[in-house]
Every structure is written in structure tokens, then in C-alpha cells.
Amino acid sequence: MIELSNVLKFYKTKGTIKVVLDGVSVNFRAGSSYAILGINGAGKSTTIRVIAGTELPNAGRVKRTARVSWPLGFAGGLHPEMTGRENVHFVARIYRQNPRKVMEFVEDFAEIGAYIDEPYKTYSSGMAQRLAFGLSMAIDFECYLIDEVMAVGDNRFQDRCAEEFSKRRAHSDIIMVSHNMDMVRQYCGRALVLAHGLFHEFSNVDDAIELYRKLNR
């Protein structure tokens, strides 16, 4: 599904070099959902962006053979001056989906009513998140990338998100970064612990969580 080979990723900050991925090779196989665990600052979010392709590795290759979502999380990326509808149409077009069908799904799922024809910048943060989240659900991704947040809004909307995700799991996989171990146990069958630029892969999530707890101490 997604294959990283010899991926090197580093940052330069104030003269020091911070290595996030140190020549890492991993194969994310279709049919499994993965959690990426690590202490704060280990580079989990960067890793998700490298997997998504919104950041490039400094060396090595990332090969994607599935439809991979953009990193879902806190809202962003939609144009503040364009209306919700125009934004949805744009994203539907770049992902080669029928804009009308995507629109129908989003209107039904995000429940923002007449605001859909208002500029995105006038939305409350909850509405903005619901729209962005509904949009990612409207497009049929084979792999969802999740950075910390997988459910937004009030309790009722969070339940709908969880319900929608459960439906998706029949044919879509998830790669998620999370500090919420209950969520990791619920959704992921495999886990990677990121430490010192290297991945430690586990086929048993509980073993990975144990290592993560040790690192956190």
C-alpha cells in the first residue's frame, strides 16, 4: 500500500540538525491498520506528512499504490474566501470525484445547513472541522492518515465520525498518530514506535504500547 525505502528526513533548526527518520524502510501493507507511537517531538506528525506526500524526504523513496488521504486532523487547507460549496467542489475535482455526489454526502454528514454557501472564514471552528472531516469521509480513500484527531465536534458528531470510520474499515486502512491508547487498541492491528529516527515494528499493539510507556518515563 505505502512503502518507505531508505527514507531520510531531517530538520535544521538554529544550526542543529534534528533527524526524524534515519534511513528508514517500512512497508505498510494493505489490509492492516497501523499506529505510529512516539514521545513528543519524535517526529510523528512529520512522518505522517512524509507518508502523505505533503513533505518530501531528504533522501530515499516513498511509493504509494493506494488512494491515500491528506493528513486528517485540525482543520485547514480550505480557502477562507471561498464558500464551503466551492471548497468541496475543488477538493472533489482534484481527487477526481463527482462534485455533486461529494457535495450531497458532505451536506448530509457535516450538518452546516445554509452556511455551505457562506465563505469558509465565517465558519465557527466546529463547523470548519465538521466540513473538513465530512469532506475526507466523502472521498473513498483506501488509506486514511490521521494525525491525533479522528473525531471532531460535540459528542453526537464524534459518535457519527466513529460510526462512519467503523464502516470504512471494511475496505479502508488507517495509519494514525495518537496519544490515546484506547483509540490505538480499537483501530490498529499493528504499531510502530518511532524513537531516535528509527521504527520499531510490532505485530502486537500492546507490546508497542509497553515500549512507548517506557520511553515516556
Binding site: H79, E81, M82, T83, E86, F90, R93, I94, R96, P119
Partner: peptide, 22 residues
């Protein structure tokens, strides 16, 4: 190539619409 053409087409429409005002 088709996918790229679709993305570029969407970007053109969006760019024209957001150049000044909306």
C-alpha cells in the same frame, strides 16, 4: 496524466475565482 490535468483544471478555476474577491 489525466489525474494531473484534472488537478490543474481545478486549480485554474479556483485561481480565477479567488484572484480578487471571490
Amino acid at each position: 496524466l489525466d489525474a494531473r490535468v484534472d488537478v490543474i483544471g481545478a486549480l485554474i478555476l479556483r485561481d480565477m475565482r479567488t484572484r480578487f474577491g471571490r
